[in-house]
Design a protein around this nucleic acid. Structure first.
Lengths: 157, 157
DNA sequence: AATAGATAGTTACGATTGTAACTAATATGT
DNA sequence: ACATATTAGTTACAATCGTAACTATCTATT
């Protein structure tokens, strides 16, 4: 009569969600307080800044697993701050190439300082080899994401 | 003049968020289609079902890293389906002990079947030892969550 | 060249969310 | 014992989000 065992504590989606929420919140508090940035705005800024090149909105969405309307609004927000500018593609006028302005780049630089500090703090808290293990596991998930983006419709991510 | 390096690809909050979002979405599609459950409702049901005992709303929130208003609404939703009942604490009348009804338990049983299947699929996709690594890393984060809940205000999580 | 289908991105709108304020109860300090 | 602070949980409200529909453009088929 006993139910077959199920340990929520070992169920990956639940654990990942919980961990992500916990880890993200503390960092979000910093850039929110300092720059009034929303999470999608920070993620968009980070995607652009880290890539070191211009990207389309769709690319940003795939890269960060954000819904396209989220990206669209984040881009609009960053544009209003003049941290980002759009440039129309010459050949395909549906595409917009998004790039950080000097002001955007400088904000990105300051934010990466915070990020670096937070990452260092995490490394101390979690321990170096737990970080390594986490990183290895995440890399496997990332490969799965890339693979599935290849087959399936990216807009559904 | 070059900015100090920052690799978004190695920044834990970003990576965790992306992975969690990706992994959770596929599973959410299943319980949404099958039971019209929301994510907070599933997480609440799972926390209760898996613990095998009654819990308070606050305990559920800490356990699942969900905001207390999210928990409050999820509890209300599950109560309306008659999957959960509340019982007042005799000594402290602010507390409500939440427990699954037989119907709730049976739904939980069916959902854990889906969960188990999904976990198995993930294990195949990611590979057993990547799962192990991920699990080890998550366990470290979980310890950090527990520690911080001890000191800091849990309502802020 | 014309039509149908696909894709990039935006937006209207209903649903979901978090903040802050609230109620009700308990705990604490004097 | 009384005032004050704290805690559990709910709710009003404004902000945010995702679905679906939309515009504009491009690609493929005939």
């Amino acid at each position: 009569m006993a139910l077959p065992e199920f340990e929520l504590e070992s169920f990956l989606p639940y654990r990942l969600n919980r961990a992500a929420e916990f880890i993200a919140l503390r960092f979000a508090a910093q850039y929110k307080a300092r720059y009034q940035l929303t999470r999608p705005e920070w993620r968009t800024l980070a995607a652009l800044g880290s890539s070191g090149r211009s990207m389309t909105a769709t690319e940003i969405g795939v890269h960060s697993s954000m819904h396209k309307t989220k990206v669209s609004r984040a881009v609009f927000g960053l544009e209003q701050r003049r941290w980002l500018k759009r440039e129309e593609d010459g050949r395909d006028r549906r595409l917009e190439h998004l790039a950080l302005t000097p002001a955007g780049l400088s904000a990105y630089g300051e934010l990466t300082e915070l990020a670096r500090a937070y990452q260092a703090e995490l490394s101390t808290t979690l321990g170096a080899d737990n970080m390594k293990a986490l990183s290895k596991g995440l890399r496997a998930v990332e490969r799965a994401i890339v693979r599935s983006a290849g087959y399936a419709r990216p807009s559904k991510i």
